[in-house]
Design a protein around this nucleic acid. Structure first.
Lengths: 230, 230
DNA sequence: CCATGTTACCTTACTAAGTAAGCCGTACTT
DNA sequence: AAGTACGGCTTACTTAGTAAGGTAACATGG
């Protein structure tokens, strides 16, 4: 059914991102990918050496979506924007984070990304040593936050019109119930307080902590920079 | 050759951790696990419903290794110790982080862990809202840092008297060579500067950034706490 | 204009992994 | 002593990655 307009490496990667977005990383099989392209499974191997290469390229495609900081512009604003952009990309493509961890071969977009960030730090007055610490801290925060969001996320079904078996269930409720059993006993009092009095309250949003944390991190970087320069 | 002393659920989990530690998450198959226990693959299913449950339990086992903060003791020192302990556990069990992301059922050790951290924040004077932001930031940093370490996967020291098997291979050199090809062209100048002038320099250690980042984060938490209280 | 090669795709089949189904011996209960 | 439940075994089905090799359409050079 799909285009059939001839498969290319780029089309394979594009389809891989689409399939993973729609149905999760688990659904990203060579067969599913082939079907999405209207082609037999083994045909993919004429454009890509193996699945690993597809995953490498898919991760790089996600990096390519990130809004790069402008080297030389005020570092704090640039890196703030880029941090939000990275997080947004990882929210759009929740499967990417898990893959990044296992990828060993950075693609061109990934390298360009690192280069821009490093350049922004350096142009902003960070020493090499300070840049190392700063980059480690900033990305630890961004990736770690995204990791937590991914862990909290119950989105296992994504509303694609897939022909796969029905999967939509009250997962949230189920999880909450599951916890309720355990929590009832009086163990974990602080957890109960936190969940009951805060996390399950109407206005609560985990995502709101991103801005707060990011600003604290950027404050820390500024002090690190000042310290290094002094 | 293994014990053969009768399989139990705990033995299965213990063996799962051992296998994953020794050969990575990819090597953790039901068949490999069965062999490690001197048993046929299907025998495992008499003690565990499925592989998912084993992974859930393995993750919980890692949490069980973490040095919990003492609720009521000075929060900064307690949470500093706990952060280092979490990182150490994730370095000992590099496969755990990837699993955590996909686990949906926290075990008792995991719940106790969260409870202790939340309690430490609360007893330290953090409001519920501040606790939410603080916990998100702190764990984003810890997990994100561990994620980066896993990605870099060089584990540069840690210095403990670990009896773990020898692992030294020219992985670093290989990766560096791979990059060198690409970097040669003059693209990525900041990356070249950083790697050449800093990261590949003798004394460099990525792990050293953990302490620096952690202290900056804790400083931030202190300001968050003061702000919330004022 | 045909033989030859190249490209892009296909069919078959092998291997590894998770696990459903059901058999069997041992040991403890009654 | 007989029954029964437990713990382990064997078999076999399903899904996934991919090795091996086949084929049709088009390009090219003699």
């Amino acid at each position: 059914m799909p285009p059939r307009t001839g498969v290319t490496r780029d089309r394979v990667v594009e389809a891989a991102v689409r399939v993973a977005d729609a149905s999760g990383a688990g659904a990203l099989t060579m067969r599913a990918l082939a079907e999405a392209l209207g082609v037999a499974p083994m045909s993919l191997y004429h454009h890509v050496p193996n699945k690993e290469a597809i995953l490498d390229a898919a991760v790089d495609a996600v990096f390519a979506e990130v809004d790069l900081p402008v080297v030389g512009a005020p570092w704090r604003a640039e890196l703030r924007r880029r941090a939000a952009s990275v997080r947004a990309a990882l929210v759009r493509h929740p499967w990417a984070l898990a893959l990044m961890e296992s990828r060993r071969n950075p693609g061109p977009a990934t390298l360009a990304h690192h280069d821009a960030v490093l350049g922004t730090f350096r142009a902003g007055g960070f020493s090499l040593a300070a840049t190392a610490h700063a980059y480690a801290l900033l990305d630890a925060f961004v990736y770690g936050f995204a990791l937590q969001e991914a862990t909290l996320a119950f989105r296992d079904s994504a509303g694609g019109p897939g022909p796969s078996g029905a999967e939509g269930r009250p997962d949230v409720a189920a999880a909450a119930d599951g916890l309720a059993e355990v929590l009832g006993g009086g163990a974990y009092p602080h957890l109960v307080e936190f969940v009951g009095q805060h996390a399950l309250q109407p206005g609560y949003s985990f995502a709101a902590s991103f801005e707060v944390g990011l600003d604290l991190v950027l404050d820390g970087l500024e002090r690190l920079r000042a310290r290094g320069a002094g």
